[in-house]
Design a protein around this nucleic acid. Structure first.
Lengths: 209, 209
DNA sequence: CTTGAAAATGAATGAACGTTCATTTATAGA
DNA sequence: TCTATAAATGAACGTTCATTCATTTTCAAG
């Protein structure tokens, strides 16, 4: 009888250091920007000499790539596995999910759109494709709701970008412990989003002539 | 009779080089980010040796500061001096102005919120104060419209951030020559904004029970 | 305990960075 | 034309950067 499959190799501390590198880089990149962060700073945060980082990531660029690819994959997985009350309509599901996820993972979200330009073209394309997949979820909700007459949306793709920009802006100003709780924010934004796509349009075009 | 006030000093080409430095830095900062741009690159764009930049700006940081302070001042001045048709209501004025200005000056706008963290604290505070002044314009429009019963806005400050985030996102995807003209985009967003703050709220909360 | 591979070290590499400065060049006013 | 000064040069400063590598340390498996 022998041990079946302990994956850890000799001399290994598992993936512990690699995880610490990811965490340190995430904080630093989010705080100061990829270009302004040095490998020496990341190494110091991890408690290791700079050269040791290269046992886990071939280059600084690869740390950024890892963080961004992981984030986009996590985002889509989180949506696919999210659970909501039965009665909750798709638009409310999306709005609440997006706000919660973006407040929970503020650093990942932040670097994923701030550091896009620091990605090599191939990695940039991968990220962009994932982003389009995520936006397509909301576009589809708006499109179907529009077809069913529940919403009135002139251009679902434009509306998608408008709504996502609106929601994604929340982490730039929301702070825990302020006078608004996370749930208050969800409700406020949900109301605005619902109205923005509502089919009831009477009176909206009124000019103060 | 003698010349009254030629401001140009001996040996001076006016402010020509300084202007070219600003333009080159603006393009570079917007494209690659402040931290990733070198003084050597800016100098090469201008057609001058790196040392010459220091005849016009004391440090690299001061170029960024100059660009951002100028941008915020220009934005507020542009709003103050903008002309609109008499019949146009304040909300439409703001939405159209914001979209036009942000598409026209995309680079300035872009660096002014991407490079905030690269500003020294004093300069950061100045920029933030200007930004609050600008946001206050929309907040006031929403507040007054709400008080007059023309709009229904639960929290004018939150609505301000939501609307501005939504509008400011446009330059990230809008491209000239696409299937939507600038005027189409204005109309689409104006409709969504108007609906989002409209007082007609019947049916918006309907759940697909 | 021995072994072997992963992980970490410590030192070094060349390149690029922002900035300085003595000197030269260009130019507007006298 | 002469003069004074702004602007530009060319070379250098010390520092920091990402990365490499021979060597040492760590540690799970046999």
């Amino acid at each position: 009888m022998h041990t079946i499959a302990t994956r850890s190799a000799p001399g290994s501390k598992g993936q512990e250091t690699a995880k610490r590198v990811r965490m340190a880089a995430l904080k630093r990149f989010a705080g100061a920007g990829y270009a302004a962060v040095s490998m020496r700073e990341i190494a110091a945060d991890v408690g290791v000499r700079p050269g040791a980082l290269y046992n886990h990531f071939p280059t600084k660029q690869d740390i950024l790539k890892d963080l961004m690819l992981t984030h986009m994959a996590d985002l889509l997985t989180a949506w696919d596995t999210a659970r909501f009350p039965e009665a909750m309509d798709p638009l409310e599901r999306f709005v609440r999910f997006h706000i919660r996820y973006h407040l929970e993972r503020a650093d990942e979200v932040f670097i994923s759109y701030m550091e896009l330009r620091n990605l090599e073209p191939d990695n940039f394309e991968i990220i962009e494709a994932e982003r389009r997949r995520y936006e397509a979820i909301l576009t589809s909700i708006l499109h179907e709701g529009s077809a069913a007459g529940r919403y009135s949306v002139d251009d679902p793709k434009v509306a998608t970008r408008a709504i996502i920009a609106m929601l994604t802006g929340i982490p730039t100003w929301y702070r825990e412990g302020g006078h608004l709780g996370e749930h208050d924010v969800e409700d406020l934004y949900l109301t605005m989003v619902r109205k923005a796509v509502a089919s009831e349009t009477r009176n909206f075009q009124t000019e103060t002539g």
